[in-house]
Amino acid sequence: MEHRRAMAVLFITLFLVMIGFGIVIPVLPFLVISQQGTPATLGLLMATYSIMQFFFAPLWGSLSDRIGRRPILLLGLIGYGLSFILFGLATKLWMLFVARIVAGIISSATLPTAMAYIADITGPDNRAKGMGLMGAAMGLGMIFGPALGGWLGHYGFAFPFFVAAALALVNAGVTYFLLPESMQQPQVTVKKAPLGLNLFRDVRFVLYSLSFIVSFAVALFESTFTLFSADKLGFGPKEMGIVFAVLGVFTVVTQAGVVNRAVKRFGDLAVIIAGLVIASVGFALIITATDMVMLLVFTSFFSIGSSLLRPGISTLVSKNAVPHEQGEAVGIMQSFDSLGRILGPATGGAVYNIDHNSPYLIGTVFLVFAIYLAKHHTSRFGENLRS
């Protein structure tokens, strides 16, 4: 019963976190422009967040292994709220960058710690279900967040940031009162070599690489799809709203209802490979779409495939980490995910002006290479192996 309550609290926590993240998406560009920024400034501001997460997610994850999940999760939520307040109060561009840096540093404690918490309270057989539910919570947040942010933006560019701050701080209160510590005893700190010296020899390195490739492909898609749809099919905000709503529904249904059943029947590795195949086919076919229906079908393939991948990779990383390294392992995975979100938009923006199809061809090549990695370099990962 206590584990069910913890799962429910974490579901609500990640749902509210992603609502807060999504709320600011429609208004952040306008806020940057209002401070005499440019599209390049906006791109750098967005990248700053992922850069901070790249460096700090493994550190927070490792710290949660030593002192517990609950204090790190609370710190991440409170810091997330304070960073939104800084955004709302910002009157100059440099203040926006300070707020974004603070958000990237402190909020990067939230996701890896929440996923490590799931690993603490679930067994190997149920871990995919837990990871899938957390992915569904984040997907739901990203459906409702931007819509709410667009509505709140009518009352001023700063207003959505204050609402997001309130959600984060209320979230911290809920976590404080309702979420118990998942680690039963303090962990003994084992002296290890610096991370950089061990990373390439880490048994999970291929899984981290898969996480990077998936994130890179998704970031390519997210950073160019609106322009691609407008340039090729003449889509406007209405059509884009329909597409993203459909993709959001597929994401939630896949992660909440399909992932666990598929893993139990076919295994983690088979689900990851299937997700890569489906995602690569959908990604490659996007450039052939000539109308709304075709675009919905192909982007839905990509969405379903990528929705199978993230919980699957997270689950396998967790299964192949000993209990006192869960936070660090998930944190490193999130770091590789952040690296994909840094390089994906930069690559997409650079090649899109050369050829509108280029981001999708590059993404397809990366996903096909990921299929090769998953099929030929993951045999060491048994369903119950712990490294």
Rank of each mutant, 00 (worst) to 15 (best):
G241N: 07
A147E: 00
G156P: 03
A137M: 08
F144V: 12
S229T: 15
Y208N: 01
W151C: 00
F205V: 12
T254L: 03
F235Q: 06
W151I: 13
P186E: 13
L179E: 10
Q184T: 14
A168V: 06
P237W: 01
L247Q: 07
T251C: 10
G135L: 05
S215C: 08
M183S: 09
G145P: 01
F216H: 02
N171R: 12
G150S: 05
T175D: 15
G241Q: 07
A158P: 10
M240W: 02
P180R: 13
L140K: 03
F200V: 06
V174H: 04
V174F: 09
V203H: 15
F177D: 07
L199Q: 00
V190L: 08
V249E: 05
P146W: 03
Y208D: 02
L220Q: 04
A217C: 14
Y176W: 14
V163H: 06
G145L: 00
Y176V: 08
F235P: 06
T254A: 04
G153T: 03
P186G: 08
D202K: 07
V249G: 04
V174P: 03
P186K: 14
F221L: 15
L195W: 01
F157P: 01
L152F: 15
L233Y: 06
L207C: 05
S182I: 10
I242V: 15
V203W: 11
S209N: 04
A137I: 08
S211R: 10
S211Y: 11
L247F: 06
A172Q: 09
A164D: 05
V249Q: 05
T224L: 00
F216Y: 13
M240S: 07
F228E: 02
H154S: 11
V163T: 10
L152S: 07
V246W: 00
G156I: 08
A245Q: 00
M134R: 02
V243A: 12
V203G: 14
L179W: 12
I213L: 11
K232M: 15
T189K: 11
